[in-house]
Amino acid sequence: MSASANVEVKVKDGSGEDPEKLAAFEAHVQAGGLIEPNDWMPEDYRSLMLRMAEHHANSEIVGALPEGEWITRAPNLKRKLALTAKVQDEVGHGQMLYEVAQDLGKSRNAMLRDLITGKTKYHNCFNYPCPTWADICMIAWLIDGAAILNQGTLAHGSFGPYIRTMRRINMEEAFHFKHGEDMVLTLMSGTEHQKKMAQDAFDRWWGPSIAFFGPHDRPDELERPAMKWRMKTATNDELRQKFVNRFAPAAMATGLVINVCEKDEHGMVTKATPDPLLKLDEETGNWGFTQPDWDEFYRVIRGNGPCNDERVALRRFSYEQGEWVRNAILNGQTTSQN
């Protein structure tokens, strides 16, 4: 569901490496070449790639939590099966991405431990509340839709195991998106109660969806290691604009109104007014839009969002209650294999 576009890590740019090897490496990746785990790579590349894959894996398994909580309340047999399968997919994505990170030198157990102690992060968007069934519909439509755009570009990156995993994940995400789109359309062609549920949930999720791609690009964005080494192939602002161009007209076509919202500390909307900047620029083909609330974004990233504590606590519960099982199944080899 999620992606690592907005992973904020401080990395060096390979200085200190053998200049000839570094130059050959950069020429190789810039020409579209792939890097495999046993190839030579700058230590900073390994470190950044590991953190990207780990952050992405963490996001998948934390992303499973808000949706997982609604499986038991899904309103019919088809939705119940589909939602279970979707959340199962997200856990599967986590499993695949942890494997990618493991190959770069960190054990799964160490990654799961760092996640529950707060040493590592997961995607910001999972720190928002899901108070109704319609929130589940919006996550599958908007957040999975955002993830597809982002991961579509990550699938053209430079690290072989990561991009092969991205391609496989993206095929499954396409199903998730269709599942989300179908649920949103069902609500918006339903009763007044359902339409209101959908609008309220859309108001909660539009902001986190456009913030999904991460903070504004920096002036030197293209020179930063993630872009220079082709781990990312599109900038945050490019992806955000692409997302709005696709989803603003799609949302309006269903009857949803795109609002600028104020929220309380629980992430619930206290005031919603139609976005005054929402307009198609005929020349560029771009839709104008009000930027997400960046103060809120940074507050949530720093751990002070509406659901940060709840999500980490549930992961910790899962880790701790399962420790005896891992010890039994892996015969005490949890440190190296799990």
Partner: peptide
Amino acid sequence: SNWTGIAPILEADIAFS
């Protein structure tokens, strides 16, 4: 299905789901 997402091992989570 309550275990989906929080089972003790990721592989077990997927299978139980």
